[in-house]
Design a binder for these strands. Sequence first.
DNA 1: CTCTCCCT
Length: 845
Amino acid sequence: MNCGDDPSTTSLPIDARLDEIQAALAAHSRALLVAEPGAGKTTRVPLALLDAPWCRDGRLLLLEPRRVAARLAAGFMAESLGERVGETVGYRMRGESRVGPATRLEVVTQGVLTRMLQEDPMLEGVAGVIFDEFHERSLEADLGLALTLDAQQGLRDDLRLLVMSATLDVDALLGVLGEATPVIDCPGRSFPVETRHRPLRPREDAARQQAAAVLEALDETLPDEARTGDALVILPGVGEIRRLARELAARAPELSIVELHGRLALEAQRRALRPDPEGRRVVLATAIAESSVTVDGVRLVIDAGQERVPVFQPRTGLTRLATRRVNRASADQRRGRASRQGPGRCVRLWAEEQPLIPHGEPEIRQADLSPLAFELARWGITDPGELCWVTPPPAGALAAGRALLTRLGVLDAACHLTALGRACVRWPTHPRLAVMLERAAELEAWPLACALVAALEGRDLDQERDLERALAARLAAPKAHRQWHQEAQRLARIAGVGLSAAGGDAISLAPLGELLALAYPERIGQRLEPGRFRLAGGTLATLPEAHPLAHAPLLVAAELDGEASGARIFRAVALAPERLEALYPETREWRASLEWSDAQGRMLGEQVRGLDGVVLERRPLHRLPPEAVKAALLAALRRRERLPFGDEAEQLRGRVALLRRAFNRNGEEGGDDAAGKAEGAWPDWSTSALLETLEAWLGPYLDGVTRLETVEQLPLAHILTDSLAWPLRARLDALAPPRLSVPSGASHRLDYTPCLAGKPPVLAVKLQECFGWQGSPRVADGREPVLLHLLSPARRPLQVTADLASFWANGYPEVRREMRGRYPKHPWPEDPLAAEATARTKRRG
DNA sequence: CTCTCCCT
């Protein structure tokens, strides 16, 4: 949010659009406002809408992605009315709310809206909902919009909905809001920024080069000849910040260097945001400075051009951090940070030619979807296709989220909430932690569970490796950990208990392992050898051998990094095997465990009992049950992470990938197309998606199969074709033909395998066969181009083009000059468009 | 050399 200099009097670009917005929402129940930064939308639009006739009898909700932004917006609007927060304008967020009987505009954080909808899908008393900063595409905002649209369609056709965003893929959003939705554009307001590129040399020390770039930029005057204002350096992470700080301190000890990142205490963050009247500062920050907070007084931005993002791996359920190049939208947002106080400069530490992807991935495509799966079940939906999504939840991650919820005991086989799941609804936490809190009653450990959840959720646990010690310290001196204490007390109030043990005794930390086992069942690890553990979810994980828990037979890893090949455990607590049995009664049942042994070339079987990959006891098994054989085969295929597609299946997958791209909006499920709606969307046949859904499409063909070799021989192309919905199958050959006719009269096979990598299909054809071909070939109803590989008579590639007309005009004369000497028996006419196409040599006579 | 950001 951008709250310029002076509250209500200054005129802002958005003022000129307010009438248009009013008119749009008077005539439609939905509208889309696309406004650049500095337009003033966040504070002016909601207040203006309060006077609309449709709003007279109801409240207005304004959604903000962050708590600071919500507080700031509410304060600013209240001030501009000459009131205090809690009168006409209020706010609501986790654990804090300031609304009163007269409040008509509630600024809420996104999670609060989800909660309000779940508790009252009618949104009684609410006249309209405004989504701010929708372009950030947080998981919560995407879900909130899907649920609000559903409520509007089914229950509340009078509810007004306004989506506000900076630059955004308007088409994708109109796809869910409806094509008739009015779109209002508004320009922004900011000072100009001069952009420079100063690429770093690879393979040389990055911090040293960054330091040189910073000092050089500080030395130059700004576009207005000034040499004032702070410098903001944006780096991917804390490690990079520390290294650059050291380097700068060594070279220029007189500089005032300030660090800014999310792991700092709130007070330290606030200090970092305040300009120093004494002199110029160099603020080294993570992406936190991109949109979450605003460093006042910045005139110079130096952008390292990287970001560190979490990548959730559905297969292991773990999240890994990856360092990536920034996307264009982020880079421009970072640059904009130099244009708030006056004309600024942005130095980008990468080459100008460096291509950047336009946007980051929406969170829904990257994140752990178990919270989303939980909310869907609570909403009463088993198929996400029943809702309208800007980006639908990916099938694999959703399936993984549901598998976790089932393991936790909150979802049943039909994807409905169980009794435990319904009880968990009262806890405002991740479903894992909700299960822990709910089941803590069994262990008579509610106070400890509240203390533990508050510690796991807070950011103050960062430096402490030892959970037990950290908790003991907090319980002994609650007042010294204010944020933790507040949160723990809030949870304790929901539980209806006090935060201390009866009789004033110290709370026992003994149930810690069990509590963690309730929240992280797939992270229960069994020791294979000292320091090496197999987790119940199947992943291998390690601890340093010197770690006190390296020899524990069983532990729970509360935190680990997500390398699939071998995760590293950061925080863990020991667990007694008999306690595991008490928590999960299914560990007492014997089940057949079969595994394909590559070494022995056969299926090995035994009877085991335990929790998934954690085996408490084993005994021999004499007859292999067929269902278990099938499950073991599927598991073996999944472990290999590839499927034995032959060429026919690869072509088929390529064709479907192409049609998915062409006909499903943005390549997602549930196409917007008339055809897509009626016939279902083209499926995701990527290897990972097919491995996720193996049971459904391959399972029926595995009856009686006991060997992997047999699977390798199955006709996968036919099996996949059979799994296509009938209307899609009927259109497949017409939309993505296996062969294409060329002017010579011959037909040639199209190669669709490049489509699997997002590229166009390839038609390899001799150049002479294409004479006279005016247009360029296309498939998918003309929506997708075909890439031509034009070949010499000896079938050597001469030219790659998707634009024949331009090749004939520009490329051909050169090719002709070079080739006609080498292949004199073949025609090389001067005017290829007038010549006759042929697959043969020149005719005699 | 463990740690991007955010939320009920």
